[in-house]
Computed example of a mutant assay.
Amino acid sequence: MQSFHLKGMFLLSLLIISILHRTNSEQLTANNHVFLFDPPSLTVAVDHNTTATIQLVSEQDEPVNVSFVYGLDRSPSTDYIQPLKPVHFPRHLAPMQIVLQISGRRPGHLIVGCNATPSLNNNLTERDFLRINIARSTKLNRLINIVGWLYFAAWSCSFYPQIVLNIRRQSVVGLHFDFLAFNLLGFFCYSIYNIALYSWRDVQDSYRKSHPHGVIPVLVNDVVFGLHGFIATLITIFQCLFYDRSTQRVSYITSILLVLSVLFLTITTIVTAVGRMDLLLLIYFYSYVKLIASCIKYIPQAVMNRRRRSTEGWSIGNVWLDFLGGILSLIQMVLLAINYNDWSSIFGSITKLGLGIISMGFDLIFLVQHYILYKNTKKQEHGYQVLDNNEQPTSSIPT
């Protein structure tokens, strides 16, 4: 059964990669857009200035005048930045760039579009509008970046205390295999989701059609973290093949859930391959499976600790680093809300917020189990003996 899980995910990864490679290699028709903003997204602080350029891409038979509009309602004015002055492109001069001076007025997020006279037929692309983030403070922005890298480091390092503990004990007894199985499935799906949104143009184009003013929600550190988590989990699983594991194995319930998940992803991937389903929807399915796996993966380990009345074999260093990463992640979300006056961003991503709270909740359970409930558990040769504070250990030597 465990072999099926690994083989299934391996074959599934080959299938999805072949689909994405095929769609990415297909040449798209040229966009008929007329204007390009460069950069397409930027950040400026309140009472600070920065620049961007607007470029006329194609030659026109007559001069083109451009006025700017703001927000999703395309208002002619805004109080987030100093309103941009209209620009003029002479006849037959393309490509031509004009520099725009951008001054921040109050914190927030703003979409800048354009109206052209005469009217020009242009297709929407990711660079037909300018995204501006107006920060309250550049210093706070740097602090946000530092906190982001700190929680990335904490979460990335959280895999290694368990690996080191397994090596030191030459045993994986006490580490629930269901946790590893859900972790492997979760990071596999997370990696597919990140790689697709970060690297493949067809997926990105589909995302932009669904979210025309949105930003691709995947950065390079997301891709690295997902792949790193998958590889680290594989290393831990290989340790389970060679170190003492007693009678531990993946439970039947978890095996059934994993098989159903792999079959679901395989079927939807095949349906997408034959052109019966949108590629972006398939990528979302991978993310949904990741979310479900993340929600339930800690339950078997917590129950196992309770049943054994011990945390022996379960690395508390892993728990501390995971908890620290969760705290830093929430701190960054709050700092972002303060810096951009955007408190809706915290509750707008309820999935991310909910998963963070669930993860930290289980971390607290593990800390209570380790330091309070089962701190007096003594390891024996076969099993575990629980000692109360006032209880003396019994001798195993016959008198």
Rank of each mutant, 00 (worst) to 15 (best):
Q2G: 12
S3K: 15
S3T: 12
H5V: 12
L6K: 07
M9W: 04
F10W: 15
L14R: 11
I16H: 01
H21A: 11
R22P: 11
E26F: 05
E26L: 13
L28Q: 11
A30L: 13
A30R: 13
N31E: 13
N32W: 14
H33E: 15
F35Q: 02
L36T: 12
L36A: 10
D38M: 14
D38R: 12
N49M: 10
N49I: 08
A52W: 02
E59R: 12
Q60E: 15
Q60V: 09
V64W: 08
V64C: 04
N65L: 13
F68Y: 03
F68I: 03
Y70R: 11
Y70E: 08
G71L: 03
G71H: 10
R74S: 14
T78D: 05
T78W: 01
Y80A: 05
P86S: 08
P90F: 02
P90C: 10
R91A: 13
I98G: 05
Q101D: 15
R105S: 07
R105Q: 12
I111P: 00
C114N: 11
N115R: 15
P118A: 01
P118E: 08
S119I: 12
L120D: 12
L120C: 06
N121C: 08
I132K: 01
N133I: 04
A135I: 02
T138C: 02
R142Y: 10
R142D: 06
L143S: 02
V147I: 10
V147A: 00
G148R: 00
F152Q: 11
A154N: 06
P161W: 05
Q162M: 08
Q170T: 14
S171N: 11
D178H: 03
F179G: 06
A181S: 13
F182C: 06
L185I: 13
G186K: 02
F187Q: 09
C189A: 11
C189V: 04
S191G: 13
A196L: 09
A196C: 11
Q204H: 09
D205P: 13
Y207Q: 09
R208Q: 15
V220L: 14
D222N: 14
L227C: 11
H228M: 10
H228G: 06
G229H: 03
F230Y: 05
L234P: 05
T236R: 02
I237G: 04
F238Y: 15
D244S: 12
T247S: 13
R249D: 12
R249F: 05
S251C: 03
S251M: 04
S255I: 07
S255N: 15
L258F: 05
L258C: 05
L263N: 06
L263W: 08
T266P: 07
I267T: 12
T268G: 04
T269Q: 07
T272G: 06
T272D: 06
L281N: 13
L281S: 10
F285I: 09
V289L: 02
K290M: 15
L291P: 01
A293H: 03
S294K: 00
Y298P: 10
A302I: 07
V303C: 06
R309N: 02
T311E: 00
G317M: 07
L321M: 14
I327T: 03
Q332I: 00
L336V: 00
I338Q: 03
D342R: 00
D342G: 01
F347R: 00
M360V: 10
F366S: 00
V368I: 14
Y374F: 07
T377S: 09
T377D: 08
E381P: 02
E381A: 12
Q385N: 05
L387S: 12
